[in-house]
Design a protein around this nucleic acid. Structure first.
Lengths: 212, 212
DNA sequence: CGAGCCATGTAAACAGTTACATGATTCT
DNA sequence: AGAATCATGTAACTGTTTACATGGCTCG
C-alpha cells in the first residue's frame, strides 16, 4: 500500500502513456525530446519499469508485428493506471532541500585558481543562457500546440479540458525558464566577484616548486 | 586515475576537514547545520567514505580517547587531501539538465483536482518562502563571521586570503536565495493560474460512484 | 539510574549510470 | 551490402535512503 517517496519515473511513464499507447522505444525518444527537460531515463530503466507496471496492471502490453519477423511490445495505460496518476497527484509531494554540487563547489572557490573559477562560472553562464533559450522555444511550441505528442493528447481530450492541458505544460516551462535565468544571473554575479577580488585570495596558478 | 563524475560527498568532507580536524560525528553535525544546505549525507555514508579517504591518503585518522573507556576517530586532511581539493576545483564540472519531480508533476496537473493542485503549490510556496528566509539568515551569519566553523577556518587562513573565504561562501548563498525566490514566484504564478481556469479542466473532486 | 547525546557500525533496497550485447528493419 | 534506425535486453557499479543495531559518556 505504501507508495515510495520517489516514483517519478513511474509517474512520467504513465503521464506519457496517457497521451497515446507507446513502445519502450517510443518512450525513450520522448525522453530525448520535449519531456526530457522535465524528466528523462535511459532505456535500461524504461524497459524493466514497463514490465513492472504491466505486472501490477497499471499498463497493458501487447505484442505488435514489425515488418516480416520482428515484433515490438506496445503499452497502453489502463483505467487503474489513470487512477494511479490521479492518486499520485492527490498527495502533496513535499519540497525538500536539494543538494547542489555547483553551489557546494562555489562555496570553496578559495581552493581554485582565479582562472579555474572563472572557467567554471563561464560554463555555468553559457549552459543556462542556452537552456533559457531552449526552454523558451519549447514554451512557444507548447502554447502554439506544435508538439506532436501534445497534439495527440489534445485530440483525445474533451474540448473543455484542453485549455488546462496546455496551460499546465506551459506553466512547468515558465518555472524552468525562471530558474535558468536565476542561474545565469548568479554566474554573472560570480564573475563580477572574481574580478573584484585581489590576486592574493586565490591559490597561486604556478605553485612553488618545492612545497616540502 | 579517472575521477568519478560525482564525488560531491568526497569534496564536501575534504572541504569541511580543511577547516579543522573532525570525527565522523562532528561532520554529521556540520551537515545538520549551515553546510547542510549545500550538501548533506547521513552517517551511514560519512563513516565508510572517511575510511576510504584514509585508505587513499587524503585524510589521516587518529584514535582519540573519550572519557574512561571510550574512543573516537578524528580525521585531519593531509597535504594530498588539499591537493585533491585544488585538483577537483581545477576541472570544470559541467552543468547538466536537472530532473525535477515538482516541475514534472506540475506539467500534468490536469490529472489532479483543483484542491490537490492548490495544496501542492501552497506547500511549494510555503517551503521556499521559509527557505529564502533561512538562507538570508545564513548569509548574514556568514558575512558577519558568526559561524563557528567559519571562524575556525578564518583563524587558520592567511589574513590576505580571508576576504575570499567569506565572499565565496556568501556567494553560494546568494545563489540559494535567488533560487528560492524564483521557486516561490513560480508557485504564486501557479496559484493564479489555478484560480483563472474554469472548473471543467480539472478532474472532478467527487468522482461518480459507479465508474463502470 | 535513566534520558539524551556521542560515536560508529551492518545490511537491504532503490535509483540511476555505464558498459556490453544482440538482432531485425529500413533506407540508400 | 552497409549504415542508420528500431527494439530490447543483462550486468556491474555508484550514490543514496532506510531500517536495524550497539554501546559508551554526561548530566540531572
Amino acid at each position: 500500500m505504501r507508495r515510495p517517496a520517489s516514483m517519478s519515473l513511474r509517474f512520467a511513464l504513465l503521464a506519457l502513456l496517457s497521451a497515446r499507447p507507446m513502445t519502450g522505444f517510443d518512450l525513450m525518444r520522448e525522453f530525448d525530446s520535449s519531456v526530457g527537460y522535465l524528466w528523462t531515463a535511459p532505456h535500461t530503466q524504461i524497459y524493466p519499469e514497463l514490465r513492472k507496471l504491466e505486472k501490477v496492471g497499471l499498463v497493458a502490453g501487447e505484442d505488435k508485428p514489425r515488418g516480416a519477423r520482428g515484433t515490438k511490445r506496445e503499452y497502453q495505460i489502463t483505467a487503474e493506471g489513470e487512477t494511479e496518476l490521479r492518486s499520485i497527484l492527490s498527495e502533496v509531494l513535499q519540497p525538500r532541500f536539494e543538494r547542489d554540487p555547483h553551489r557546494l563547489r562555489a562555496a570553496y572557490m578559495e581552493w581554485a585558481t582565479r582562472d579555474a573559477a572563472r572557467a567554471q562560472l563561464l560554463a555555468h553562464l553559457e549552459f543556462y543562457v542556452a537552456a533559457e533559450t531552449l526552454y523558451k522555444e519549447e514554451y512557444e511550441l507548447i502554447v502554439n500546440e506544435q508538439i506532436p505528442l501534445l497534439k495527440e493528447r489534445l485530440a483525445r481530450t474533451a474540448p473543455e479540458r484542453r485549455q488546462g492541458v496546455v496551460a499546465f505544460k506551459a506553466f512547468a516551462y515558465t518555472g524552468m525558464i525562471e530558474r535558468a535565468r536565476a542561474e545565469a544571473q548568479w554566474a554573472e554575479e560570480g564573475l563580477r566577484l572574481l574580478d573584484s577580488l585581489p590576486a592574493e585570495v586565490f591559490e597561486p596558478s604556478d605553485r612553488p616548486v618545492a612545497k616540502r
